[in-house]
């Protein structure tokens, strides 16, 4: 019995230390990515190329999801607001929900599963096929040449995608609320404009998506770079990217919300 407890505690300790070691390595990797960003920012076409693969390729899913989420919000909130005779607040609620929360968070979750997993798989595959080793042997630093451009591309793309998501969502809410359910168009927009503050809500939303962009791409490039260089290793790392970054997004969202909208 004592022996079993001992083994259990040992296992617990081991898993904790190895997790901490991995976290430490990930942090070191993050710092190295920033340090070696010179090449990527000097030769900016490297980043532009990756913006195409992370940003442009995620645009369709972001725009379509944004539209549908906004339309659903329009329907759902209208039902509830109508009960209290305050359907005129529909625009405000749709806009605030999207700009403060759903825009940054859902766009980041979609981004993690669309672009994050692709980044992990690509870097992992380059590692498995020794392309990263080959690069090292050609005296080219893979962190500077492969990791940093992808990282910056993600950081640039994420706020833009989140803004597109929110904008599409508000249009979706408008389509349902105004065109379909008959809320007054002026009330819809005026209520929204009266309650949405540019600095308080929109800028904070952009800051959120910026932070999520850093988190998702950091996890994605790290998982790819750190993965087992085998087929199973790459697929496992891809799954881990999506799971870890989704959890990290939600946790970070809570922390950020607690700080940003404390008074409001």
């Amino acid at each position: 019995m004592l022996n079993k407890a001992n083994v259990f505690l040992q296992g617990l300790g081991f898993s904790l230390t190895s997790r901490m070691a991995r976290l430490g390595f990930a942090s070191k990797f993050f710092v190295m990515t920033l340090l070696y960003s010179g090449t990527a920012l000097r030769r900016f076409h490297l980043v532009v190329r990756e913006v195409y693969f992370t940003g442009v390729m995620s645009m369709i899913i972001i725009l379509v999801s944004g539209l549908f989420v906004g339309m659903v919000l329009g329907l759902q909130l209208y039902q509830t607001l109508q009960t209290y005779g305050s359907a005129s607040a529909l625009g405000t609620l749709v806009a605030l929900t999207l700009v403060r929360e759903l825009g940054p968070v859902v766009a980041a979750l979609l981004f993690a599963s669309r672009a994050g997993s692709a980044i992990t798989a690509e870097i992992g595959l380059m590692k498995a096929t020794e392309q990263l080793s080959a690069m090292e042997m050609m005296a080219v630093n893979p962190i500077a040449r492969v990791v940093a451009p992808r990282f910056w591309a993600g950081v640039i793309s994420m706020p833009l995608l989140a803004a597109m998501f929110s904008a599409m969502g508000i249009l979706g809410g408008y389509l349902i609320g105004v065109q379909h359910l008959g809320v007054d168009s002026g009330t819809f927009w005026s209520q929204m404009q009266a309650s949405v503050d540019v600095r308080e809500d929109i800028v904070n939303g952009v800051i959120k998506s910026f932070v999520f962009g850093i988190i998702v791409t950091w996890i994605a490039v790290f998982e790819g770079y750190d993965c087992e260089p085998t087929a199973e290793g790459v697929s496992g790392a891809t799954t881990r990217t999506v799971v870890t970054s989704s959890l990290a997004i939600l946790a970070a969202d809570f922390v950020l919300t607690a700080f940003m909208f404390r008074g409001a």
Binding site: L125, M126, T129, E130, Q131, S133, A134, M137
Partner: peptide, 11 residues
Amino acid sequence: GMLFQFGALFT
């Protein structure tokens, strides 16, 4: 110069 096992060409 190094030649890797399966070439390791950039795909």
